[in-house]
Design a protein around this nucleic acid. Structure first.
Lengths: 99, 99
DNA sequence: CATCTATATAGATTTTTGTCTATATAAGTA
DNA sequence: TACTTATATAGACAAAAATCTATATAGATG
């Protein structure tokens, strides 16, 4: 889980996900919205893809990206378990007050 | 938001939050569950506190920690907006296909 | 085929961050 | 007061990560 969070925790990548949240965009559309270079965008998209947070299709020489909403939902669901009560979790194995 | 996520994205801190999800624990209880040193734990707790993800009270010479569930809920709520439709978001300002 | 556009890769560099050791502080206890 | 336990701080160091420039590839188009 921390691996997914690390990918999302970068402000540029989070903004990319936000931009994609309304629908498909190509890399060059995204690039125009950022200050960083094209190889940097390529690097971010690769990370997002490798971690299944986005999906890609080829359209001519363009890469069209969209959110993988299922994976993102799954991540937020798991994260919300932290603030919910009475779920199976590692904290049950803790011995309190042993120090 | 990415600041919060960066704090949570570390696997040690995520595990600390998980351990705290069942209730209050002192730093020394937590320390016994990890391989790293006491100063490292202290550093992690400081980060979690500075970002309001946990709350602390003093009990003698011990620090008692608990989750700040409100903040964590707020974070997961905002994150879940990514995978939901039709919310106000920066992607509406995008000009698609301008490249 | 030559060229342009869109994207990827390689490699270097800088920043960030997680960790350590050593030491300090602060509270409890004999 | 001396000592022990719990925690914090300072400073160093190493690993990870974000960025860049330069270059390569791949598809579209004249």
């Amino acid at each position: 889980m921390s691996q997914y969070l690390k990918v999302i925790a970068d402000s540029s990548r989070l903004e990319i996900l936000d931009l994609l949240s309304c629908g498909e965009l190509c890399a060059c559309d995204l690039l125009e919205h950022f200050e960083f270079s094209q190889p940097t965008l390529s690097h971010h998209m690769k990370l997002l893809r490798e971690n299944d947070l986005i999906l890609m299709r080829k359209d001519g020489n363009k890469n069209m990206y969209r959110l993988n909403k299922a994976v993102i939902e799954n991540l937020t669901d798991k994260l919300s378990l932290l603030s919910s009560e009475a779920v199976p979790c590692i904290c049950h194995d803790m011995d309190k007050g042993s120090c």
